[in-house]
């Protein structure tokens, strides 16, 4: 407190006098106080600064407390560490689809027949909502193997294989039709069925994730 320890000569000045001279800084709550931030000798920018700094610190502290509470809902470490899976393609006959679980979702492993591949390639330049060539959706030289995340891009249902107007998949929930390349052709879904990251470990074995 500025003025603390200062010796006052003569009779103590009246409080109001001390205020007006700015020699004392007293809390605003003192009875009878008439705080005037622009009183002579009182620098207004100092109080403003304290207000802003205190406010900013409070907001910063609030955000620092809230963020952990929000972020705890994001995937936990063990969830993120979910191992990738390996799958032996030898089990899948031509024309057949096998569904495996990957990261809590179904994964379609489809062994396409030459007819189905031809139908997909033929439509490469048809009017597509989410344009993609069939070649971009399988590994080079492995046209028969279509690996897709088996959730409809509309609202996440599991489409049924072989259904719909294009012989690919049909989603029973809201009527999305996918072709034999897993591309969206009709219905409410906005995107093609997703091709996950995967690699061929050998001719008959893939690793997904």
């Amino acid at each position: 407190m500025p003025g603390a320890g200062r010796k006052l000569k003569g009779p103590p000045a009246r409080r109001e006098d001390l205020y007006s001279k700015g020699s004392f800084k007293v809390a605003d709550t003192v009875v009878g106080a008439t705080p005037d931030p622009h009183a002579p000798g009182d620098d207004p920018s100092r109080r403003d600064f304290i207000h802003i700094a205190a406010g900013a610190a409070a907001v910063g502290a609030a955000v620092a407390i809230v963020w952990p509470l929000v972020d705890q809902m994001n995937p936990a470490g063990d969830t993120l560490a979910l191992a990738s899976i390996e799958f032996d393609l030898g089990k899948v006959e031509p024309g057949q689809q096998v569904v495996v679980k990957w990261r809590g979702k179904p994964l379609f492993v489809r062994n396409r027949t030459p007819d189905q591949i031809a139908a997909a390639v033929k439509d490469d330049h048809a009017q597509l909502r989410d344009p993609a060539t069939d070649e971009s959706r399988h590994k080079p030289g492995k046209a028969e193997w279509l690996i897709l995340v088996g959730t409809c891009t509309h609202l996440g249902c599991v489409p049924t294989v072989g259904g719909g107007d294009y012989g690919g998949w049909f989603c029973p929930c809201h009527g999305s039709h996918y072709d034999t390349s897993g591309r969206i052709r009709k219905g409410p879904a906005p995107k093609n069925l997703v091709v996950p990251d995967y690699a061929f470990l050998s001719d008959t074995k893939i690793k997904v994730g």
Binding site: M73, N74, P75, A76, T79, R103, G104, K105, L155
Partner: peptide, 24 residues
């Protein structure tokens, strides 16, 4: 998945709601 329809923030929000990559 309804929240996934939102542009840009849709996917992070659904992951946040799920606490994973699927309802689990």
């Amino acid at each position: 998945n309804l929240f996934g329809a939102l542009p840009i923030i849709g996917a992070p929000i659904t992951t946040w709601l799920w606490g994973g990559f699927a309802v689990d």
